[in-house]
Write a protein that binds this DNA or RNA. Sequence first.
DNA 1: GATGAATGAGATTTCATTCAT
DNA 2: CATGAATGAAATCTCATTCAT
Lengths: 216, 216, 216, 216
Amino acid sequence: MGRARTNPAPTAPTTARGRRTHDALIVAGRQVIEEHGWAGFTPEAVTQTAGVSYGTFYTYFESKDDLLRRIVQAAADEMITESLVPDTLDDPYARIVEANRRYLAATGKAAKVLRMVEHGAYLDDNLRGLLLEIREFYVGRGADGIRRLQEAGLADPDLDPRLTAIALGGMVEQVAVVINELREPLDTEKMVDHLSRLWASAIGLRAPGAGRRIPA
Amino acid sequence: MGRARTNPAPTAPTTARGRRTHDALIVAGRQVIEEHGWAGFTPEAVTQTAGVSYGTFYTYFESKDDLLRRIVQAAADEMITESLVPDTLDDPYARIVEANRRYLAATGKAAKVLRMVEHGAYLDDNLRGLLLEIREFYVGRGADGIRRLQEAGLADPDLDPRLTAIALGGMVEQVAVVINELREPLDTEKMVDHLSRLWASAIGLRAPGAGRRIPA
Amino acid sequence: MGRARTNPAPTAPTTARGRRTHDALIVAGRQVIEEHGWAGFTPEAVTQTAGVSYGTFYTYFESKDDLLRRIVQAAADEMITESLVPDTLDDPYARIVEANRRYLAATGKAAKVLRMVEHGAYLDDNLRGLLLEIREFYVGRGADGIRRLQEAGLADPDLDPRLTAIALGGMVEQVAVVINELREPLDTEKMVDHLSRLWASAIGLRAPGAGRRIPA
Amino acid sequence: MGRARTNPAPTAPTTARGRRTHDALIVAGRQVIEEHGWAGFTPEAVTQTAGVSYGTFYTYFESKDDLLRRIVQAAADEMITESLVPDTLDDPYARIVEANRRYLAATGKAAKVLRMVEHGAYLDDNLRGLLLEIREFYVGRGADGIRRLQEAGLADPDLDPRLTAIALGGMVEQVAVVINELREPLDTEKMVDHLSRLWASAIGLRAPGAGRRIPA
DNA sequence: GATGAATGAGATTTCATTCAT
DNA sequence: CATGAATGAAATCTCATTCAT
């Protein structure tokens, strides 16, 4: 009634048991979203899935929003971690292939969660900021790669690296989503191959000193 | 949503005034979704935006779902109509440019609405079917175009037309959506240029008898 | 979920039926508070008492707080209106008697509601302001009366009118509360007599040109 | 509140540490009520203020009600103890002054706590009885004092001692509470002076053999 | 048809109390 | 004894849908 929150602001759990429950709720929350979508994402569903009582939810999270933010953060971290390409890989085309393969592999579920948030019901400023950060990570990384190739004389110098990264990154992102939704099961490895060839051709990638642009 | 209905089934409006109200509600509904997302899409908001009383909603629509279906249908029709490229345009590259320009111009918001439905709370079989149809329209059209170019010896014959269409179509679709969400204002015409060059390069489009793949 | 209120902000009812329901809810709310105290003041109890459904509460009031504010406002208005002493009454002592009689008569229930708010669970800034206003009304009126008597040479000139009004007003206010709570039934008219004599003696009120301070 | 209890009944603390914790909780509880009112009075807030863990609450108190009763009892004891006027003080007016000074000094907050209980959410028979006792103590003491003065010919014999004590006691009590709530800071000593003069004049107190009723 | 009030099941959140460690 | 996590009934609020006028 018009008064400030009087309830205990949830604090980080101090005991092992507390941490277990806390983590279980995040895992359960993610699972609920993935399986039942927005409509199913209720504190009740989450606690039931985690096997704890209703009230326990608010021992660890201020609100549904709060849990959502943490789920998104976790999904984003996971996506980014899993889609990093090792520095030891030198060949530009191989790097493209690897990046695409990892992206498609990594983003099945995580991307689904992120999309749901993006186009779903609830977007406060915190979440919007989080999503923009994630996008910026991918766009920036893609633009850097393109710029390096241009500087090495390996890619079309007329392309704006950032616009190109937005476009080609969008291609891969969108394909990742479609794969998870299409009825027709796509051969993922074949799609990785196509995406890589399209990406390479699009930026005019050529093997140093070679006439052929992409491996046959 | 999903409650049994006991309401009189709304009938198609018979008077001119009825049709006007009906259409105004669809327009208002679309506007509400675009501007306020799912959270704002309530009968209350829609009727207020349309300037009619609350109860009028159910004079014309069985339910929120019902209106949603009609909004999606309208958005899809509009997208498809506006993104058709006239047959009179012969030059392949010019057709690509034109298709991309029209897509970006016409469909940013419509695509956003479709995405929302896709990832939003409510996806009944009707809606899912509708979305698949729309996607199939674009993918099919893109694949046909690529296949024709391949047959004419103007595009890389090693590419699977369908996979390629999914990937490149996804690129344009994703860019269309992103443009409306990014903080940085993109120069649309420059983006059209980039998308077109990327698309053309990606499929190895070459002007008949020319060495250069894309216009400078 | 972190979004602004999307629900219709309740608007003043436009139809007669609406006004009836609105008023019934305020009456019911007041009755619930008086009879069951804070613990019983729930939207459910209020709507049941008013004979409407639960949801109707939020057709007219933004929140429990909102209704509470209106109840307090109504109680205050009622108290103030009923405790006004007609200007036609000239004799100072008679005015004191009349003011006390009206105060005790008027404030049984209203004062109970106000006390509950004051010492009860919920005091946001709006309510606090409202209560201060009410108090100020009584203190100001009392101080004015005392000052006038002092200027007419009818009351002890050494008294600070404001402090005196706070003290004597508090006396009457407190007695009003006690009357409603004590087991022992007090003779109200006798109490009015005592309060008036105490008040008059306290300020040294003397009839013009008379030795006796108060009527026997 | 009002739930059946299955908890082990807390036992009186046996160790020094136990007593310290027990007392700290009562002090903290009182502080919480005074500062944050009913809304803030939660086991959580009390234990935090006392610097002990949540669960410890129920080591010492059966319930919130239980703590409340002890707080009220402590506040009452304190009020009564601190407002006792030493028997060595003989002069009637000086006794009035001293009683008022002590009451204002000691009991503003305690009185507020008692009021809160009175008008707050929870009033079981135990509490009600306690409050009536406290009131009776003050009313009885006041009435006795007035009766003695009347018998000594020092006060208006027409006044009903009990009614007068209720009224004048209410005056002081109310002022004590109001002082803590008013925006305008009152000069307490000046208020003591006024209260005393008003009280004395009201009962017609006159110094034996003196014409002036109250010190100038 | 249009209007706006009414409905009530369901979602979110609170918090006094209990319990495992 | 102390700790802090767990519990769940009850409170507040939402909103798609229905209904009386």
